[in-house]
């Protein structure tokens, strides 16, 4: 009884009175508050952090990265492409926080600006792949005649490793951030279409969809009002994972020289340029790698948290 808040004790006392009236359960009543967990009083925000720590941490880090990308020019950076051969390969110092590379460019500025490419590619790919995948998935789920054909094509696309598919697509076009986004989106969207098709097939059988059909609702309205809103939760979760994997794919493409053109700093090509000096000047690779890891981890944490919050069946609760 000692751990109870006043409110709870009052409740227990009332419960005890009631039990007195009907003359039952005398022995069990005083133990009751001890058995039940005592809910802690929490504010809205602290309560949210307590329930969904991964969303909070992931969201905070993603927010930080977005802020860095937006405010890169104001974060005490200099021109990330300015060459200064006289000051090349300086160690990190108060003047050059992350040192300089072999062409004398400031690694700190390049990493800050490089976040723009990573985030842009990650979010754009997540968006494009979700839209395209949702469209294909809806068609496959609703038009049963072409379902088998469409899904076999998707299976075919999924059987090619995304990085190889992206390299092949980049080889067909000129290196630019837009082309990187298109290439990675094509590599990623089959997964979304598979997910959406599955969700659509299960939602189609839901009584509320059947009731809507029986109420004379037309197919486009059923898709818009009944199917899509209920697809959103798994779609958002999938989108975060695609975002994270797109960032890695972009960095990989840039690292092997098939992605972002060298004039635009991206974490991938900063690492690629630092690779030759890795043994003597490891910081050139180290800093972009740290930022990439943190960002991918943050997006994945956010996705994990969203999945647990949106689908309680998957949540691992103690």
């Amino acid at each position: 009884m000692s751990a109870t808040t006043p409110d709870r004790a009052g409740f227990a006392a009332r419960a005890f009175e009631n039990r007195d009236l009907d003359g039952l359960h005398h022995a069990a009543a005083p133990d009751l508050p001890g058995i039940l967990p005592v809910p802690k009083e929490r504010g809205r925000i602290t309560g949210f952090i307590y329930r969904h720590p991964t969303i909070f941490v992931g969201g905070l880090l993603v927010g930080l990265m977005i802020a860095i990308a937006i405010f890169a020019p104001y974060l005490d950076t200099r021109d990330p492409t300015a060459l200064a051969p006289a000051r090349r390969t300086r160690e990190p110092s108060a003047l050059y926080w992350f040192g300089t590379d072999m062409l004398g460019r400031d690694v700190y500025s390049r990493v800050m600006y490089g976040s723009r490419v990573s985030l842009m590619v990650g979010f754009s790919v997540a968006f494009c792949a979700s839209i395209l995948g949702t469209f294909i998935g809806l068609i496959a789920g609703f038009v049963r005649q072409i379902d088998a054909v469409v899904m076999r094509v998707m299976d075919g696309l999924m059987s090619i490793p995304p990085i190889l598919l992206a390299i092949a697509l980049m080889a067909l076009t000129r290196a630019s951030v837009q082309n990187v986004i298109v290439a990675i989106s094509i590599a990623e969207f089959p997964r979304v279409s598979r997910l959406v098709r599955g969700v659509v097939l299960s939602l189609r059988e839901q009584p509320y969809v059947e009731a809507a059909i029986a109420s004379g609702t037309r197919v486009p309205v059923i898709i818009w009002k009944h199917i899509l809103p209920n697809t959103l939760a798994p779609l958002m979760v999938q989108a975060t994972f695609i975002c994270a994997s797109a960032m890695i794919t972009e960095a990989t493409l840039s690292f092997i020289g098939a992605g972002t053109p060298p004039i635009i700093p991206s974490w991938g090509n900063i690492m690629a340029e630092g690779r030759a000096l890795w043994q003597v000047k490891p910081y050139i690779v180290f800093f972009p790698a740290i930022f990439l890891s943190i960002t991918v981890l943050a997006v994945n944490l956010l996705g994990d948290g969203l999945r647990d919050a949106l689908d309680p069946r998957l949540a691992k609760r103690l």
Binding site: P207, Y208, A211, A212, A214, S215, K225, H226, P229, N230
Partner: peptide, 23 residues
């Protein structure tokens, strides 16, 4: 048929899955 549906309606078994949770 769409206008005919007006005249025959349905009530399902499961009160939880027969209403769209987002409406």
């Amino acid at each position: 048929l769409r206008m005919m549906r007006k005249r025959v309606q349905v009530v399902f078994q499961d009160p939880f899955s027969s209403l769209n949770p987002r409406m």
